[in-house]
Design a protein around this nucleic acid. Structure first.
Length: 372
DNA sequence: TACTCGTGGAA
DNA sequence: TTTCCAAGAGT
């Protein structure tokens, strides 16, 4: 039923008052962000560019604002429009995304750009229409609808889950509480300025209503906050305990050619680090398998252990023993050589840059621009 | 519903 | 140091 995703009439006793208080706070204290159109500009008639709103929202999925900023700048400079991104090489997009994590986002970004370009370069302007595009889920569809198209969509992200669960002292643990939080957000969302309201809720969660030590004395909603009245805002939201991360081990092989080139290969499109490049490695297993290292190298060589690196993924930790060898120019099937000037621009995830750095310090550091 | 899927900053 | 967790989506 589409109707259950439509906002309800705001409750005049609480919803309207809260929205008004929060928007007044936002007008004075909103963050200045590269992808954001400030309320003053909106009042003058400026409209957000849906392409920039979409790009920023995808980058911000589970990713901090400060981390996203340089990537956002690089993307809009390289690809100023959705048509430009649609026409880009997928490999170039993966390279530009390298280091940002959750690499399926980059593939979905490209696929989404192609679909939107096929629609004449215009994004759908409804939640339902946006929801059909790859990489756009419930949150992102609502955020784009509200921010770019002024639709009164109920936007719910991690910040808003925290703010709303405190505002209404919702003790139900996540993710069970999501339905109730959504209903509350639907009641709160105003018909006027829904995009600013969503961003105001997120700014509040990011700057005042923080996970630990919330600064309630500065909060515009402190008098409306049930958790504050109850005396323990930090108790909310209630989350289940997390599972412990298992440790996996493996070995990585950095083969260096006489001209300094490093041997790389491309990972499968799906799965962990999908579509990204890597130095050859063994399988990553729960046990340490020293036996497998020599046979798992791309070829026989004078492999020397140069150290080890550690890396933490979402659901496991990894320790890689790093080996290096000087080799000839043969190219094993499925591999390719990357020259020193190209290394920093390769689609290398952070864990692979760590491995290369352990073998050749400075190799992945950004150097001079490649001559045109 | 429950996993999978990165990374880095803050406390 | 460890732990948490950030503007979640796909399967």
């Amino acid at each position: 039923m589409a109707s259950q995703h439509q906002p309800r009439k705001p409750d005049p006793e609480t919803g309207d008052a809260i929205a008004a208080l929060l928007l007044a706070w936002y007008d004075r204290h909103h963050r200045e962000l590269p992808w954001r159109v400030a309320p003053r500009e909106l009042a003058r008639g400026a409209r957000p560019d849906p392409y920039r709103v979409w790009l920023s929202e995808v980058m911000l999925q589970q990713t901090g604002v400060e981390t996203v900023k340089p990537y956002f700048s690089a993307f809009v400079e390289k690809w100023p429009t959705v048509e430009a991104l649609a026409a880009a090489d997928t490999e170039a997009v993966m390279k530009a995304w390298a280091g940002l994590g959750y690499y399926s986002r980059a593939r979905n970004l490209k696929a989404c750009a192609e679909k939107v370009a096929a629609l004449g370069g215009r994004f759908p302007d409804t939640e339902a229409g946006l929801r059909e595009l790859p990489g756009i889920g419930p949150y992102t569809a609502a955020a784009i609808a509200a921010i770019a198209f002024n639709r009164p969509a109920a936007v719910v992200d991690g910040n808003i889950e925290r703010v709303v669960s405190r505002l209404h002292s919702i003790a139900t643990p996540l993710p069970q509480a999501k339905a109730e939080i959504r209903e509350r957000m639907e009641q709160l969302t105003p018909a006027s300025r829904p995009g600013d309201f969503a961003q105001a809720m997120m700014d509040l969660g990011a700057t005042l209503c923080t996970p630990r030590k919330p600064r309630c004395m500065l909060c515009p909603l402190v008098e409306k906050c049930s958790a504050v009245i109850a005396g323990d805002p930090e108790f909310y939201p209630v989350r289940p305990a997390k599972a412990e991360k298992p440790l996996r081990r493996g070995a990585a092989f950095v083969a260096v050619r006489a001209d300094g080139a490093i041997l790389l290969r491309k990972r499968p499109d799906k799965g962990l680090l999908g579509g990204m490049s890597e130095v050859p490695t063994t399988n990553w297993t729960a046990r340490s398998d020293g036996e497998a290292t020599a046979s798992a190298a791309p070829f026989l060589a004078d492999w020397r252990r140069v150290g080890s690196i550690g890396h933490v993924f979402t659901h496991f930790s990894l320790e890689l023993e790093v080996f290096r060898a000087k080799t000839g120019g043969d190219t094993p099937a499925g591999h390719f050589w990357s020259l020193p000037i190209d290394i920093s621009g390769e689609a290398l995830p952070t864990v692979m840059k760590k491995a290369i750095e352990a073998a050749i310090p400075g190799a992945t550091r950004k150097t001079l621009k490649r001559p045109a």
